[in-house]
Design a protein around this nucleic acid. Sequence first.
DNA 1: TTAGGGTTAG
Length: 826
Amino acid sequence: MLTNPISLLWLVWGLTIGALGFTKAPIALNSHETELSKQGIISLTSALYGTPHKTKRKGNTVVAVRNPFQLSQGLLKRKLSEVGKRDQLGLGLSQSYCDKVLGLCVASDEWDHVLEVLDVMKRHGLKQERSSYRACLQACFGAGNGPSAQEILSAMEKAGMDAEPVDIGLTAAAMCRNNLSENGWWRKALTLLKQHSHGDSSSSITSRNNPIPIQAYNAVLECMAEERQWKEAVRFLRLMEKGSVKTAKKEDGIYPTPALSTYRAVIESCAGSNQAEQAIQVLKSMKHHGVQPNTYVCELVISAFSKKMQWRRAIQILDLMEELDVPKTVVTYNTVISACARSREVGMAKNLLSKMKKEGMRPDEVSFNSVIGACASTARWKDALALLDQCYREPGVTPNIYIYTNAMRACARGGSPKRALSLLQVVKDKGLPLDSYCYTAVIDACAKGGMWKQALSLLDEMQTKAIAPTEVTYSVAISACGNGGQWQKALNILQLMRQQGMNVNLITYNAAITALSKASRFHAKKSSGVKSDEIGSEDLWSRALLLLGQMKKDGIEPDGFCYSSAISCCGAEGRWEEALKLIEVMKKGGPRTRPNKVAYTAAICACGRAGEADHALNLFQSMQNEGLSADRVAYNALFSAFRVAGDADKTYELWREMIGKPTTTFSQPSNSIARAKSSASPDIITLTDCTATLFRASQFKKMDKVFAEAVDSGIILRGNRLDSQWETDLSGMSIPVASAASRYILNQIRSLKPKDLEDISFITGVGTFHRKGQNKTGSSKETAMSLRDFLRSMLDTEFQLESYIPPRAKGTVVIKKEALAQWIEQ
DNA sequence: TTAGGGTTAG
């Protein structure tokens, strides 16, 4: 190219121009200023010379924000050199070309270059025409440079040139683009539009036939949607609707007719602000203003209802679409299915699957995934797997990783870790892309199924496959360790997360603290009967406290779950004082932290176990003083505390308080009645602890009274099927209750014919028959009887009881006759 | 424009 003499010439001139500093504003500004000010351009140079405007405030610091519309510097340079070249060569320059370059300079805030181009234009006899301003505004819009557009508009006015509706529109739209980097710009654009729409600007030449283009209004409405200003959006839409009709009065202003996109923006802002009802209002009003709604705006309304868990309303939109003659698509149905799925309406979601088929639409992977996801959240793994099976048969549907992951989640929640694992194998066999989501689902399945080793090996497997575990993955892995009693491993994972610079959030901390509390409970059980200093103390309570401290350092306020778990940790290890302290800390916290019934009860347990019945009682009372009525569990915790302390008097009083009889220690007899009837009726555990304490204090009369009153207060013992070997626990407290509960059963059994026995098999297990250390309760209505009578009847019927257990119940009740007899003689 | 996650205390 350089062989071309013109090119050579250009090279020389270009260098000369460069040397003169064409890019660095060498032109004497002053000489231009007077001339430029006449042309109305000078205000731009002085106002905007070097002032940055695309900044955002973040706290106290101003951060520069990248403008997504920013023009490329290369383009500007090329255009500028083209102008320079033609100028130097004496070639002609058209007005439109110069306008364009001028626009680029203005839009890039290259004010030096503006002056240069103007200078060139002047030499070529070109002026700033309306087209120059228009080009500048267009370029500003393209570059998202609202401030410069604003300046150009006012320069236009200063130059005595009326801004046309298009110019106003371009300026407003350019200003709205600035909204991306700095919120609130739309307000300025709105003001500008309103000014000109209502004709309060003298320079405005908007008319009913020539309004400001609708796109400018849409731009403002879109900004409102982005900033969730739904009220403003609806208000402005109504203003537009009023001012756009032919019959509009002068004070209504001049507005363009709202378009589909206008309504879309308003519906979007309502939907985004969770204003589903408003969105439907706007949707319904469209036809009145001659705009036919499309599928998408209807889907927006559906998703708004979906977010609000209003699945019925979402379905109603389907009918409305029919009414409004809006075509439905697979996506429409998927949106509604997803609404039902979110609300856990599995049945309805399934119905919609078949409904869409009837209407000639084929469900796709998204449709199936939503329904399977709903099955997962409701732990319906059988349904999930049936749907997965359906996917295989469905034409055009191939189960993808989403679908498999949700199926695994369903298995996890349905307590079927093995099925989840085999699904993972299927995913591997099919060569689908494994990711953190599906691993998390399977690890979660292992966690819930008590398979901590498997969970950890899956975590390793992820590493070998270079799939990075997320905080959620680690969180379920911590739970897996916690459920398996592996508190140390749980804490190791927590540490690993920190080493990796990961976020440790409330849920993760909760899982870790829960791991500690589970381990401490396990530990306490194992060493029950052994004094705590005789066994190697694990100090789990102090680790729980450390974690609470760490949370605060991380700026996370522990919630009730964290604290209650920590308190339970303290309680299991005899640290009742620490438990009390934690309650005090909770009181100082926020609404999610302040102690609730559970926390108080955990603390009552902690004190109770340590024999600190007075503190337990104090907690019980201060809980109620704070407006938290004691429920059955709280009562039972206090009964247990009194049992440990051997306080038969307080036990009996508490009993009377609970069933609504007047007491001396416990106040509010009138309230207590209501309370006893509603939330705090005694159950078999209450009865067990209460009578055991009385029994040990040899207060047999009170004991019989309690039994009688238990019947009066309508204790119903809920039932469990007898499904394996049961054995009566004759030690300690269980016997008195076994007596009362079982008498009814024994009578039943005696009076029954063999064919009826299967029906009563479910009531033969009674809470006091212990199975593998777990308490199971039986179902029967109590009848009061004397303890002695009961025990005798038990001795008498021992053999019968054993032989009458129906085969289906697969169990026998073994009553140790010698132990019973020994106990009666006491 | 429609689809995927976790903790849960007495």
